[in-house]
Amino acid sequence: MPLVRTAELMTAAAVRQGLAAFNVITLEHVEAVAAGAERAGRPAILQVSENAVKFHGNRLAPLAAAATAVARASSAPLALHLDHVESVELLRQAHAEGFGSVMFDASRLSYGDNVKATADAVRWGHERGIWVEAELGRVGGKEGEPPLDAHAPGVRTDPSEAAAYVADTGVDALAVAVGSSHAMTERTATLDHTLIAALHTAVPVPLVLHGSSGVPDEEIRAAVTAGMTKINVGTALNTAYTAAVRTHLTENPEGVDPRKYLTGARDAMAETVAGFLRLM
Rank of each mutant, 00 (worst) to 15 (best):
M1F: 01
M1N: 00
A7N: 08
A7C: 10
A13P: 12
V15R: 12
G18Q: 00
N23M: 05
N23F: 04
L27G: 02
H29W: 13
H29Y: 15
E38K: 09
R39M: 14
A40P: 10
R42S: 02
A44L: 00
I45E: 06
S49W: 04
V53A: 04
N58W: 09
L60K: 09
T68L: 12
A76N: 04
D83N: 11
H84S: 00
V88L: 11
L90A: 08
A94S: 04
A94E: 04
E97N: 14
F99M: 07
F99C: 07
G100C: 05
F104Y: 15
D105C: 04
R108I: 14
R108C: 09
L109M: 14
S110H: 06
N114S: 05
R123D: 15
E127V: 02
I130Q: 11
W131Y: 15
A134P: 02
E135P: 02
P146Q: 03
D149P: 11
S160D: 15
A162D: 05
Y165V: 07
V166H: 03
D168H: 12
V171C: 02
D172Q: 09
A173D: 10
L174D: 05
L174N: 11
A175I: 11
V178R: 04
M184Y: 00
E186L: 01
T188W: 03
T188C: 00
A189N: 05
A189M: 10
T190I: 15
D192K: 06
T194G: 14
I196Y: 01
I196G: 01
A197N: 08
A197L: 06
T201A: 14
T201P: 00
P206C: 04
V208W: 09
V208R: 09
S213H: 14
D217C: 00
E219L: 10
A222E: 13
A222M: 04
T239H: 09
A240C: 08
Y241N: 09
Y241M: 12
A243N: 13
H248L: 10
T250L: 15
T250G: 15
T250S: 15
N252C: 07
E254F: 01
G255V: 07
P258G: 10
T263N: 01
T263Q: 07
R266A: 02
R266P: 05
R266Y: 03
M269R: 01
E271W: 09
F276L: 06
